[in-house]
């Protein structure tokens, strides 16, 4: 496979994953706004931070308002993480790797693009927001379904998976980081109403409410949430889950295990994901997440080099 193709596959799936995550973030923000418990502007600022685009947003806007934040995340072309930008970029990469993916997968991406193109051409009103978000998520879900259902399990598939799980791990880590102060063990052992809303919004942002409830019933506080999002190997958006998928797929690409990126992932696992949750709090939650984020960035850069994405 061409290095360029591996690169295109990797970014195609990263952008698809990012589009979905941005949709989740908007839903989460909207949900918090509706409960009217927090400070609206501050909540949206923290949502923008989770999306990694708060500074860019503030360059283009005077203040954070709900309407501006939603428009920015949904359809602003200056925002590299807006749903529109991501879906366009995913399709652009899909065109580049058109010969590597199945016709069905391509058509699904093209359909997602056409639907985004139509739905996001104009400002989306609050009334239409949830329907539009749902349409976007259905579009990307169909792509994922087509990829899973029609693609060979070969190196093409491996690069798609690596892109997906790197993006997902990155996102989950940022969600935790932006809200880390809410998750620090507080003196009031039982969360207040406000805490509960924040915790719920964290879980909502990773589609984890149902799974968390299954594990912990009505109970569970910050410690459990951190365990769930970082260490739980059955939670499909946890750091441990994502990193083990990245490791699996790198190993398929390189069965002898010589590639530096594979060694880096294994190292990341033993250093950060082999302990229990107390160790994370002892290390400092914020510092821990920062270390993981930077290690993930290093892995991504090493994959580019190992598989000759550019040179």
């Amino acid at each position: 496979m061409l290095g360029k193709t591996a690169n295109g596959l990797f970014w195609m799936s990263r952008y698809l994953e990012r589009a979905e995550n941005t949709a989740r973030l908007i839903e989460t923000g909207q949900r918090i706004a509706l409960t009217r418990l927090g400070d609206d502007a501050r909540e949206w600022a923290s949502i923008l931070q989770s999306a990694g685009s708060y500074p860019a947003f503030m360059d283009a806007h005077e203040e954070v308002t709900k309407e501006a934040a939603i428009n920015w995340m949904l359809r602003d072309r200056d925002n590299p993480a807006s749903i529109r930008t991501c879906i366009e970029a995913a399709r652009q990469n899909a065109r580049l790797v058109r010969t590597a993916i199945t016709g069905e997968s391509w058509e699904a991406i093209n359909a997602a693009y056409m639907s985004a193109d139509a739905s996001l051409a104009r400002k989306v009103t609050e009334r239409d927001l949830s329907e539009v978000l749902q349409r976007m998520r259905q579009g990307t879900a169909l792509v994922r379904g087509m990829i899973l259902g029609t693609m060979m399990r070969n190196e093409i598939f491996d690069f798609l998976r690596i892109g997906t799980f790197l993006e997902r791990a990155d996102y989950t880590a940022r969600i935790i980081d932006v809200k880390y102060y809410v998750l620090l063990p507080s003196i009031n052992a039982v969360g207040s109403m406000i805490d509960n809303v924040h915790w719920e919004s964290i879980l909502r942002a990773v589609s984890g409410r149902g799974g968390f409830r299954m594990e912990y019933g009505a109970g569970g506080g910050p410690r459990e949430i951190v365990h769930f999002l970082v260490l739980d190997k059955r939670m499909p958006r946890s750091l441990a889950f994502c990193v083990s998928k990245i490791e699996d797929n790198l190993r398929y690409l390189d069965p002898e295990g010589h590639s530096p990126s594979l060694r880096m992932v294994r190292d990341l696992k033993t250093r950060y994901l082999a302990h229990d949750v107390s160790a994370i709090f002892d290390y400092g939650l914020h510092e821990f997440i920062q270390s993981v984020l930077s290690a993930l960035g290093d892995v991504a850069a090493q994959i580019e080099r190992d598989f000759r994405f550019y040179e």
Binding site: M1, L2, G3, K4, T5, A6, R98, T99, E155, L253, F307, R308, E311
Partner: peptide, 21 residues
Amino acid sequence: VELVEGHDLRVVDGRVAMRTT
């Protein structure tokens, strides 16, 4: 077959070769 662009190719040992993974 592969779809290549100029920057995927270079001359290596007297042959035109494509950069693969």
